[in-house]
Amino acid sequence: MTTVIETKKLTKYYGQSRGIIDVDMSVDEGEIYGFIGPNGAGKSTTIRILLALIYATGGTATIFGKDVVKDGPEIRQEIGYLPSEVFYYDNMRVKELLDYSASFYKKDCSKRINELSEIMDLDLSKKIDDLSYGNKKKVGIVQGLLHEPKLIILDEPTGGLDPLMQQKFFDLIHEENKKGATVFLSSHILSEVQRLCDRVAIIKEGKIIKIERMSDLGKSNYSQFRIVANKPISKDYFAIEGVSELKTNETHVSFLFKGDLNMIVKMISTLDLQSLMVEEPDLEDIFLHYYQ
């Protein structure tokens, strides 16, 4: 399998302040790669380095095996980018902006522009100044995809889109992905990542703390326990190895468990139970676990 994006020890400092530190990633061709973390973790910094808007202070980043700075223009022929906030030349019309965007690529994009605007329900004759934020975002989507890029980079893409449009947008991304496009998606919304991605990298305070297959994350050996007993349970009853996120409130207990299930079941069997739920934790819980 070919690697599309590869970073090695990628580091960025803004003067004294931290951007990202030693980020190692490799995104394979054809996958949808999620990049998740809270605000300020370094997601946008990483993306802007990949696009050579800013320059790394250390490490290397390559796309399609080429250096993002040295071969930037060549690489970007095949990249489509949708920033988190979209701003365009507001004295232009939508059509003019899309044509300007298309003029940078060595192919005829007019057919694709019409298709995409049809799907996204976009009025080409409007002035950009008069568009609502959501509609500007649609312009962003169309201008990012109109040249059928091999790599699509999305930075928190769904803000400002209503649920219906989000669905259309995700369908569109899925379709591009089926046609062979690699997708790199940054987000702080877990459901978004859970729905779309094959693999996910979790970033915290500028450092990658975990890279996992979505399927592995989903069926990780963690189990989420929720117990309601008839009598109050002592706070440290479940404070054993393998338990995390332990929350005890009188008769209510919840925790994540990783380890020998037989042992924990034995412990539970000694309690006077009112209800017991054991489920696979959703990403939200795991995420909190990494961020505690």
Binding site: L51, E74, I79, P83, E85, F87, Y89, S101, Y105
Partner: peptide, 17 residues
């Protein structure tokens, strides 16, 4: 200043150009 940098510079053009 007009925040269009994220439109223009991800295009396949070099800074020099």
């Amino acid at each position: 200043l007009e925040r269009t940098a994220e439109f223009l510079y991800p295009k396949p053009v070099s800074r020099v150009c």
